[in-house]
Amino acid sequence: MLKKLLGLLIVAGVAALAVYWYATQELKTYLNQPVQMEQGELITINSGTSGTALLRRFESQGWIEANPTSRLVRRLHPELLNIKAGTFFVEQGQTLTQVLNTLVEGKEHQYSITFIEGSTFNQWREQLAQTDTLIQETTDLTEAELAEALGIENPKLEGLFLAETFYYTAGMSDLDIYKRAHRDLNRALEKHWQERDEKLPLKTDYEALILASIIEKETAIDKERGLVSSVFINRLNRRMRLQTDPTVIYGMGDKYTGNIRKKDLQTPTPYNTYTINGLPPTPIAMVGEASIAASLNPETSNYLYFVATGKGGHKFSTNLKDHNAAVRDYLKQLRANQ
């Protein structure tokens, strides 16, 4: 009798082990199946969503095949169901386990927005307003109201944000981007102000930012920034007017239609450096860190002039005679390019 009972227990134990083995293999197959999407897709997990409810959602949408052993996930792999709320990107070909690990780790999808060096505050506002992945909090604010919301004392916001690429997740707002861009601008400006050439004719870091914005508008060539900066620093030291066209264009505002006439150069505005002495009152564009660095640590040169070559880059001159010759060469090159 005892032998018979022992035999039955052994058989039952073997059967239980077989059932357990089969169930775990089925569960393994369930978790290792690829999520069926034609292409990568963003999914949003709302706060309070359970891992079990998520699996049912995936099954109902046809992304994974249902399996009775899915009920064992919570018992055997509870770590896979401790998912976070947020917006996540599911890549094509990922397994269910890989997707669940992404949601558990909370690796939310990163959106990005890039602001080009030399762009203006108005262009930033337009770009942000068209970014539908950001919550719009500042659209109806005036420039002064936005400055107040950001805790910026200066109501003129031109130049007060660093032009670069910003990454963000779902649920962030345009105000968040402004805050980060202003914070990054302050960090870069403070860093280079502390490392500046002490002999510069710049009294404040804001003046350095104004100069950086002019450099930004004059050249996009990294190796030229220091030389362009040296020209303006040399002119400031000699009390020569800067006579830089981008300041004229900025001062013209909507009146600028693509060409600067002699009349425009002679028409006074607060920004026209052909008619005012020194720097304009504010930056004329948003800058990148390279232009800030150039404004505070220019190259050493005797250059007082520069003009585009028409072939990319600029020709730098130490005197007006050579500069006028370079201008003639530039005009000749323009005619040849037509």
Rank of each mutant, 00 (worst) to 15 (best):
K156L: 11
E158A: 10
E158R: 10
G159I: 05
L160C: 05
L162K: 07
T165N: 11
F166G: 05
F166H: 13
Y168C: 07
Y168L: 03
Y168E: 01
Y168M: 03
Y168F: 15
T169V: 15
A170F: 08
G171R: 09
M172N: 13
M172G: 03
M172S: 14
S173H: 13
L175D: 04
L175P: 04
L175S: 10
D176S: 12
I177K: 01
A181W: 01
R183T: 14
L185Y: 05
N186R: 09
N186I: 03
L189I: 09
K191V: 03
H192A: 05
H192G: 02
Q194A: 15
Q194G: 13
E195G: 01
R196V: 03
R196M: 06
R196E: 09
D197P: 01
E198K: 15
L200V: 10
L202V: 08
L202P: 00
T204R: 11
T204N: 14
Y206F: 14
Y206N: 10
Y206L: 13
I210C: 04
S213L: 04
I214L: 12
I214E: 00
E218V: 07
E218Y: 01
T219H: 02
I221V: 15
I221Y: 12
K223T: 15
L227T: 09
L227P: 00
S229E: 00
